[in-house]
Amino acid sequence: MGEFLSLREAVARYVEDGQTLALEGFTHLIPFAAGHEIIRQGRRDLTLVRMTPDLVYDQLIGAGCASKLIFGWGGNPGVGSLHRMRDAVENQFPRPLEVEEHSHAGLAERWRAGAAGLPFGVLRGYVGTSLADHTKTIASISCPFTGEELTAVPAINPDVGIIHAQQADRDGNVMYWGITGVQKECVLASRHSIVTVEEVVDEFAVRTGGVVLPSWAVDAVAVVPGGPHPSYAHDYSDRDNDFYAAWDPIARSRDAFTDWLAGVVEVKP
């Protein structure tokens, strides 16, 4: 049931050390505030799942929250590398990071299978690439009807899935629109889910391309205006491209990152 909680309460109730966690949102609607709350609560040994780790996972990895990353594209969009992620992979700093690497098409199938309650998904993918040599969760399978060789990937079913939406209504139903990514699959595939929202409204307007997740499919709703900054919420905020550029020198330097982290930990929501 979409129970209204503060973000602090929601993370404290559902997020535990050692879990598999997904914070989804495809460039748009990335739940940054929730990531910062997980850092503040000092969670450790998390397996983090995301199609595009983006800055939110660079921050969680740099803060030492993660021991494993499942991902498809780990860059700072339009800027360059994720340097905290690279420091973890290349130098095991601040701790070693195991990576499980896929393509976006493969991860999308893993999300669909997770949401559908199936053990694996099927696609035409990875063939001829080096990915299958290094990622155990890519396997060949024969179609039982045609004999065609296809690729199987296991379902993703995180302990907790976290997304950001534009609106909740007073019953805890949530609605988001614009670029909708894999958020529906993330919520439905996860054992528990937390949705941060820009605001609570009396009634949803009809919106082209709008996605509504019914209250009973969600565990917690937290009102966090601006929760996706420096990502954005369509019709509420613009992507802060300057922050993405400014992140590069912060993440390149362990000291600059430590200073940034101190600012996050001190903020009391």
Partner: peptide
């Protein structure tokens, strides 16, 4: 667009679909 998820891409699109759908 500054990124693959720039708002201008969805605002000016004929159709917007989810990521599972676009790949599949």
């Amino acid at each position: 667009p500054a990124s693959i998820g720039d708002g201008v891409l969805s605002e000016t699109a004929v159709a917007n679909v989810g990521v599972v759908e676009i790949f599949s």
